[in-house]
Amino acid sequence: MSKYRDSGGRQTLAPITETIRVALQRHLPAARLDNFSTHARLNADLGLDSIMLMELLVSLELENGLSISEDAFIGENLETVRDLARLLAEGQHEVLA
């Protein structure tokens, strides 16, 4: 069973959120991790610019197999950690489907 799904096969955002936190800690030391929470805003609270966000996305894809489509990244309004976790969960769903 995927660690990103509960026993009923439903997606859960908590493990993905924790994976995001760990990736930030490992790859983006300039991020303001003290402000990290589900509702933290990626730019205003965590201090991620567009390049840092790209770095985060690529590291999540290469190291954790979590990805979102380019269209989602470019078209969606990624404002909070929860927005990102939700899109990563949807990407996971597409892979598993």
């Binding site: 567009s50 390049i51 790209m54 770095e55 996305l57 690529v58 590291s59 894809e61 290469l62 380019e70 990244f73 470019i74 078209g75």
Partner: peptide, 17 residues
């Protein structure tokens, strides 16, 4: 405009992978 972001994203992937 948005394709510029797409190019930058793929370049980031190229560098990191």
């Amino acid at each position: 405009v948005k394709t510029c972001t797409r190019i930058q994203f793929r370049a980031m992937k190229l560098v990191m992978s």
